[in-house]
Write a protein that binds this DNA or RNA. Structure first.
Length: 507
RNA sequence: CGGGACGUAGCUCAGCCUGGUAGAGCGCCGGCUUUGGGAGCCGGAUGUCGCAGGUUCGAAUCCUGUCGUCCCGACCA
């Protein structure tokens, strides 16, 4: 006869996962759908998450020798046509600008006028326009390597959109590099993959599998695509970042050539790599729970909120002053080498409601301070990685002294939790029946959470891959860098396989 | 872009079948009460019923078109 626990987010994850996801975004005030089809408005709390992602990644790019630059939003149509596979990959989702002005007609309606001689496409990615410029910038082996990154928005005209995970316009970072040799370009590709993986694990607290994409999942125009793959709480995979070895495809298409020491003119080798605001979606689906968002401390817009409890008018000012002092004290502390970010919420709202707003936003720590705490010089602390009822009192000094390490503990705890979840839902499968069973829901009508990551042998057989996509909507997420198990036999074709790959349903 | 569902107050939704000019709960504003917790009572504000046509004396309600959202599929970061 246990009554269902009251949750801040309804439905819960197990009841209706896609709806839960949207409700978390709303409850935490991260973003909302805009009046523009397929585009989202990122609100301050959500944008702050992105800014924190940006600032850490930006520092890491710079630490590895990359420089930021900015290239045009518009790309002349003919640039797109230079690389055949690239065109094919992106043509279907390009926004095209065809006119240069608006004119008011008889009825006062504005209509496009002044057709452009050559239509412009809004960048879905910038390989072609950047290649055009790189061809000018690169003349000699002395110009290499050329390591450029751009923070930008891109547009891909998607049919089906979901906040953060897939929107028509999104924010991202795209790195584009040029190298003298294949080896060096490949080294760069792998360096960035490692950089992304380390960032995901240590900042996003999101465990990822590094690996190579199969031919079918490759970036259009790339020779090799590498990705980091994370498991979301519905056990589906999210491709969280990609790094592409482009070989000489784009240097040939854009004519990026250099003179080597011997005076020979050679085509350069290029790479490109990116992560997007999709990472925020990954953050939500990795850590948020049935009470809302859960921010990993290292990326949290704020680490702690001070909530004054002012039950009596007489003690109100005293409490507020005390809280203000506490806020200043906390601002002098550091976590992760930066000042601790503290909010002081003295809005005239009821305590309980205020508390829940911050729970839903996923702030790592809440501190409630009331008149009784003043007397004992203590504080009442809640950790977001614990249940909302598990808050406890402690001396103020203890709280202050332990704060930095507690934030790190929360960070580690979220990471461990996500890792355990992934391990619990990952299995190794050797025969077709078990594989189909693993990826088939018990009750087809309820959209229940099922499946997970399946490691199974595969013999580089595209037909088998397509079959599974068709039958089960399961794809090969990657050929993991660290292969597990011995060589074996593909359970679908019986062909010999050199190792297992990771299968999953994906976003 | 195909299949389905749905657009009514900030949010969740009722009303539509059987046309007669708009409702609830939550939220918001004000007052009182309450106060270590998502409060209670009283009062109040808020809607060209997605948009455009059509049928009708009269349309949230019926018809057509259109735009948007969500779910499923194809495609994709």
């Amino acid at each position: 006869m246990s009554k269902k626990a009251k949750t801040a987010i309804n439905p819960t994850r197990s009841e209706d996962y896609p709806e839960w996801y949207q409700q978390v975004i709303r409850a935490a005030d991260l973003a909302e759908v805009s009046p523009v089809r397929g585009c989202m408005v990122i609100k301050p709390w959500g944008y702050a998450l992105w800014e924190n992602i940006q600032s850490e990644l930006d520092a890491r790019f710079k630490a590895t020798g990359h420089k930021n630059a900015y290239f045009p939003l518009f790309i002349p149509l003919r640039f797109m046509q230079r690389e055949a596979e690239h065109v094919e990959g992106f043509a279907k989702e390009c926004a095209v600008v065809t006119h240069s002005r608006l004119e008011a007609g008889e009825d006062g309606q504005l209509t496009p006028a002044g057709p452009l001689e050559e239509p412009l496409i809004v960048r879905p990615t910038s390989e072609t326009i950047i290649g055009e410029l790189f061809a000018k910038w690169v003349q000699s082996y002395r110009d290499l390597p050329l390591l450029i990154n751009q923070w930008a928005n891109v547009v891909r005209w998607e049919m089906r959109t979901r906040l953060f995970l897939r929107t028509a316009e999104f924010l991202w970072q795209e790195g584009h590099t040029v190298h003298a040799s294949s080896e060096e370009a490949m080294e760069e590709t792998r360096l960035i993959l490692d950089l992304y993986a380390d960032f995901a694990e240590s900042y996003m607290a999101m465990p990822v599998i590094k690996g190579e994409k199969t031919e079918g999942e490759r970036f259009p125009g790339a020779l090799n695509t590498y990705s980091i793959e994370a498991m979301m709480q519905d056990r589906k995979a999210l491709q969280a970042g990609t790094s592409h070895f482009l070989g000489q495809n784009f240097s040939k298409a854009s004519n990026i050539q250099y003179l080597d020491k011997e005076g020979q003119k050679l085509h350069a080798w290029t790479t490109s790599w990116g992560v997007s605001t999709r990472l925020v979606g990954g953050l939500i689906m990795s850590h948020a729970d049935d009470n809302g968002m859960v921010c990993p401390p290292r990326l949290a817009p704020a680490h702690v909120v001070i909530l004054p409890v002012t039950p009596k008018e007489e003690t109100r000012n005293q409490v507020l002053e005390h809280c203000d002092k506490l806020a200043r004290e906390i601002r002098d502390l550091t976590f992760d080498g930066k000042p601790i970010r503290v909010e002081f919420d003295d809005r005239d709202l009821r305590g309980g409601e205020k508390m829940w707003q911050w729970v839903k936003k996923g702030i790592p720590l809440t501190v409630e301070v009331g008149p009784r705490d003043l007397e004992s010089d203590s504080v009442f602390v809640g950790r977001r990685d614990n249940g909302p009822q598990e808050r406890k009192g402690m001396p103020r000094t203890e709280f202050i002294n332990s704060m930095s390490s507690v934030l790190q503990e929360i960070q580690d705890n979220l990471h461990q939790r996500a890792k355990d979840f992934r391990e619990a839902n990952t299995c190794s499968i050797d025969n077709k029946e078990d594989f189909y069973d693993f990826f088939t829901p018990k009750d087809k009508d309820t959209n229940e959470i099922h499946g997970g990551f399946a490691k199974a042998h595969w013999a580089h057989d595209t037909e088998a891959e397509d079959r599974l996509q068709k039958d089960l909507k399961v794809s090969i997420r990657c050929i993991p860098e660290e292969r597990t198990g011995e060589p074996g036999t593909c359970p679908f074709t019986g062909k010999p396989s050199e190792g297992q790959v990771v299968f999953a349903k994906a976003y």
